[in-house]
Simulated scan of single mutants.
Amino acid sequence: MKEILVLYYSHRGSVRALAEHVARGIHQVPGIAARVRTVPRVSTVCEAVEDDIPLSGPPYVETRDLDECIGLALGSPTRFGNMAAPMKYFLDGLAAEWVNGTLVGKPAAVFTSTASQHGGQESTLLSMMLPLLHHGMLIVGLPYTETALNRTHSGGTPYGASHVAGGDGNPQLTAEEVELAVAHGRRLAQVALKLADAA
């Protein structure tokens, strides 16, 4: 079974909720499955601040997950218009994978959550694309043929699925946010399968 890596960092649960719906969309495509992984928190004092194995949720990502996947969905909350430090820390450690071309030619999608409506969702999604482009990945966005992009009054952008959590960090996605996250996962899986079959 071919797999797409759904890799995320979530602080209050919103990005995790998006990841679950992206994975659901991936599973809608026959012949492909989602491999869900996360990254540990980091600290400026001692870098890693988590146990080697998470107490709950998916396991931490390993570099072999990148090698074995045929595509990548990458999710992070927004921190001042950029991805959160734990995700950036993980990506910054992928020099060997960059040299070896581990991700070259594989499709990727990005998703995020913000506390406020204009909290930097699109700049965060764009910032997450940059290292993926350096790795030679092919970015898969959300086209406006997904009609929920025109209906949403909260999250959802052509750059990727998103969620507006509000100041209380509410992980409850709107109907449009769910629809777009599922559609994004499904589209990524369809593209990944076509590329893998053509190789």
Rank of each mutant, 00 (worst) to 15 (best):
E97F: 10
V36N: 00
N170F: 09
Y159S: 14
T38P: 03
S127H: 05
A19S: 14
A33F: 06
K88F: 08
Y159M: 13
G105I: 10
Y89I: 04
Y89M: 10
S162A: 13
L18N: 08
G93W: 11
A96R: 13
I4S: 14
L125S: 07
H153E: 12
P143Y: 00
T112F: 03
R79E: 06
H21N: 09
Q172N: 13
I70P: 00
V22L: 04
L173G: 00
P107K: 05
F111V: 03
L142E: 07
Y89Q: 13
G25L: 02
A189F: 01
G160M: 04
E179Y: 03
T112V: 10
N82E: 06
F80R: 08
A148I: 02
N82A: 14
H135K: 12
M137L: 08
E47C: 06
T78S: 11
L66T: 11
Q28K: 13
P40M: 06
D51K: 12
V42Q: 08
I70R: 11
V99R: 15
K2L: 12
N100I: 07
T145V: 12
Q190M: 10
R186P: 03
A109P: 10
L188I: 03
Y9W: 12
P86A: 03
V178P: 01
L142Y: 06
G166K: 07
G13I: 08
T157V: 11
P77H: 07
D67I: 14
G141D: 01
A115P: 05
R186F: 01
P77T: 11
R24K: 15
